[in-house]
Nucleic acid binder design. Structure first.
Lengths: 84, 84
DNA sequence: GGAAATTTGTACGTATGTATC
DNA sequence: GGATACATACGTACAAATTTC
């Protein structure tokens, strides 16, 4: 599952869009854990700080909720602000 | 105008709150430029990346709008989402 | 009870790109 | 061209919370 990221757009936005897509299509069902920062940075081959930014964005978008020590989980809200 | 930042809460949130306060009380009137990332990092003695985070927050909050090469300006919306 | 591993959150510092003046 | 300013990206370090052994 190779991922093509072009460098003409912000990488963190592209990754956020990909993860958001997986949430919407059910790859990551509601309530389940999404890949951690370390896992995301490995999969997309970016720095952990970039993966962290993706998490912060998804969180501010209401798609996920994070709990320190546990992980980040798909929020139970179907979809309202997928607008970003 | 010394600024006391305690380290028990996120520094970037405290600075964001201070800047937001200055916007609300008219210290930074609508349409004017707010301090740049470099200026914020100097005033509050934090890294530029921390000041950048403050900017990103204020921007996502709708309090300011940024323009590359120009600066960051107080948005013309009085107040609606000071909620954060 | 405690040590280790995992995971999010915060903070620092640096480099580069892009746009404006 | 040079100075200024925001945006992106990398890498590192540590704190806090949770789980597992």
């Amino acid at each position: 599952m190779s991922v093509d990221l072009d460098r003409t757009r912000p990488v963190w936005k592209q990754i956020a869009a990909i993860v958001a897509g997986r949430i919407e299509d059910g790859t990551y069902p509601v309530g389940t854990r999404v890949p951690s920062v370390v896992e995301l940075s490995a999969e997309f081959e970016v720095a952990s700080s970039t993966a962290q930014k993706v998490m912060a964005w998804l969180k501010s978008d209401g798609l996920v909720r994070s709990e320190v020590g546990l992980g980040t989980f798909v929020a139970d809200r179907p979809a309202d602000g997928g607008s970003r």
